[in-house]
Design a protein around this nucleic acid. Structure first.
Lengths: 150, 150
DNA sequence: CAAGATTACCCACAATTCCCCACTTTATCC
DNA sequence: GGATAAAGTGGGGAATTGTGGGTAATCTTG
């Protein structure tokens, strides 16, 4: 279970250092093997431990491939999914196509999100967060959420 | 399980280098024997390990051949299917008719898609991808996909 | 059957990636 | 507050990968 915001700097080679507090857990659950792909709704990346991702890929592959919406998901998610390995210093090299998609340059944010992480450009993350905070919560809370007690 | 985006250059002879990270897997599952055919919906190519393809060909052949839609699939898919072998440097020679169909010139993209790969011209892939990203998800999500949680 | 074109195989160079080592900075503990 | 350890950062160099092209074998075509 990952959580928390982590401001991180990409180095000139496009590498990001995973914060030390996550490393043990990552080594434990997947021996440093991760998969990064794009988020189809936002310009950010999703980062899964390999076993987590394989579950998801199976589900996506099983969708009827003649259905346009399913093909879209397959092409976007599986098409962009890239295997990554932590190096000896606990860093990940993010491939250029993924960096481009999420507009990552130097300052990025690693967001713990339960089974996965999200990777944002810092600027984009802050803008998106502020937007969320300004939303008028009054309208349309789905019923699944009505019973949530925080 | 193939996945990921790979920008590749075709050389002047129409050969494409398979990225090294897939080679071992390809040698393992089919000893370098692959089958390429066309995608009937998009101007791109499909690339299967030989055993995978043979399964699919069986299914296509089994379709009722008096049905026009079935004959269409048979003629298009089986008709364009071409056996390819990796050379000593891990490259595939894409035959001219297939290159023409998918409008491949120098810059192409190899897209991992689970059991198969897709091969796109870079320009066409980017256009298609951008189109997918702009789709308003609101309309017509098939019910199989409603429950998908990423 | 011969000539041209195409394909297969091979070798060599160029470029990139990856791995490792070392330094700087931050955190921790006494 | 200083010393020690841990974490973050940077970069050099070796090994792998990508690329180009030459030559020999095969196929096509006239």
């Amino acid at each position: 279970m990952f959580r928390g915001v982590n401001p991180i700097n990409l180095d000139t080679k496009g590498r990001m250092a995973i914060p030390a507090r996550y490393r043990e857990q990552i080594m434990g659950c997947c021996d440093g093997s991760l998969v990064a792909t794009i988020d189809t709704e936002e310009r950010c990346l999703l980062l899964y431990p390999l076993p987590e991702w394989e579950e998801i890929q199976k589900k996506i592959e099983a969708l009827p491939s003649l259905n346009p919406a399913a093909r879209r998901l397959q092409r976007l998610l599986i098409g962009h999914a890239t295997d990554l390995e932590m190096d000896g210093n606990g860093r990940l090299l993010l491939p250029a196509p993924l960096r481009d998609y999420a507009q990552l340059d130097k300052k990025i944010v690693l967001l713990g999100q339960g089974r996965k992480f999200e990777i944002w450009s810092e600027a984009l993350w802050e803008a998106t967060r502020d937007e969320y905070l300004q939303v008028d919560e009054g309208n349309e809370i789905p019923e699944e959420m009505q019973t949530l007690s925080l």
